[in-house]
């Protein structure tokens, strides 16, 4: 397997399991190709860092008062004039 064939599999494998034959071929390539191992490592690192950054535990700052007032006013207005189609349940 060449790198040009392996890299799409590296990417595909991040989002869905590869079938057994493709996974076997990719594993064999990764044993001998440092470049593709690095590619896999970078993709995984980026994915994990992005997820962790997005789910950071720092508390969100409160909304500014003006924003709160504006949102509440919009909700009241929307509640007073519901759309013709109605709303569906959760």
């Amino acid at each position: 397997m060449h790198c040009r064939d392996a890299l799409p599999l590296v990417l595909a494998g991040l989002d869905a399991p590869l079938d057994a034959a493709r996974q076997r071929d990719l594993d064999a390539h990764l044993l001998v190709c440092a470049d593709c191992v690095e590619a896999l490592r970078e993709h995984v690192l980026a994915r994990e860092a992005f997820r962790d950054a997005s789910l950071a535990t720092a508390p969100e700052p409160p909304l500014p008062e003006a924003v709160v007032r504006d949102l509440v006013a919009r909700m009241r207005a929307a509640r007073a004039a519901p759309p013709a189609g109605g709303a569906r349940s959760a």
Partner: peptide, 16 residues
Amino acid sequence: LQDAFVNVARAIGGFE
């Protein structure tokens, strides 16, 4: 966020 809260106001009656 504005759109979301407007949608909430419209749909909350159906929230079960």
